[in-house]
């Protein structure tokens, strides 16, 4: 089974804070990490490989330093990593990103199953996975919480819904996006780390994947960010003082309507 996992390098959101004085993002000490959802997609791919044989390719689109997440992917069980990187990709929205990834996948091989994290924690759009499936004309299911079985050229999965789940069967090749419940990702192994250290990570440019200029980067993006601002604080707040008991009494006084 030839598997491909799409992986994004993102800033570790839990470290990111808004500086209350300057109202800007405090970036100090924010590390770049593998998008947590993608880690689960990778783990699922590696488990499928262990159960059914085949190879796992990790693909990332990003700046040159995104190579780090591909090495990490190899340490976690991927067989190889491929980076798609070009200044011309900068400013890509999800439309241009799914185009670029689809071109890159066409360039590097053919795959039975493509796995993506449900969404990336920096953008939280959850649009690239379905978009990529549409580009590649693959059947897909989003928010997969469990892969049940791979039989007769198809895969049976549980798709998380707002109120429960659906059991869905789709033929391969196909694309899945996964939620965190699907598995517990492993810690990179020692042998994997040694392999990752030595691995050759090819870098594909826009020209290498035969991308049309009008479809990539900012130029290829139908959406434009026109304004960026900080969420407003609540105006009418009241911070109580005194002992715990005094504060609780004041609160109860103010909350009478609810009690």
């Amino acid at each position: 089974m030839e598997l491909l996992v799409c992986i994004k390098q993102v800033p570790d959101a839990k470290d990111v804070r808004l500086d209350p004085r300057t109202n800007t993002l405090a970036r100090e000490g924010v590390e770049s990490i593998m998008n947590p959802f993608d880690r689960h997609a990778l783990e699922e791919a590696v488990r499928l490989k262990e159960a059914h044989g085949g190879t796992v390719t990790a693909l990332s689109m990003g700046p040159p330093q995104a190579e780090a997440v591909l090495r990490e992917a190899i340490a976690c069980g991927a067989d190889r990593g491929v980076l798609v990187s070009d200044r011309a990709f900068a400013g890509a929205d999800t439309w241009a990103t799914s185009y670029t990834l689809a071109r890159a996948i066409d360039t590097i091989g053919s795959f039975d199953l493509i796995l993506c994290g449900k969404q990336a924690i920096d953008g939280d759009t959850a649009q690239v996975g379905p978009g990529l499936a549409a580009r590649m004309n693959l059947p897909y299911v989003t928010c997969v919480q469990k892969t049940r079985d791979v039989v007769d050229g198809g895969i049976e999965v549980e798709r998380m819904m707002d109120d429960g789940y659906d059991v869905v069967r789709l033929p391969l090749p196909a694309l899945l996006t996964v939620v965190k419940d699907i598995n517990e990702p492993r810690v990179p192994s020692l042998k994997g780390k040694m392999k990752a250290r030595k691995a050759d990570i090819p870098v594909l440019s826009a020209a290498d994947i035969g991308a049309e200029e009008a479809c990539i980067g900012l130029a290829g993006s139908p959406t434009r960010v026109v304004n960026v601002f900080s969420p407003e604080p609540r105006g009418d707040r009241k911070i109580f003082t005194g002992t715990a008991e005094e504060q609780v009494d004041q609160l109860i006084e103010h909350l009478r309507d609810f009690l």
Binding site: R17, G123, T223, V226, F229
Partner: peptide, 13 residues
């Protein structure tokens, strides 16, 4: 909300 919700972004097509 964008960038983990730390900022709000207005987007148009």
């Amino acid at each position: 909300p964008a960038f983990g919700g730390n900022i709000m972004a207005t987007i148009e097509c």
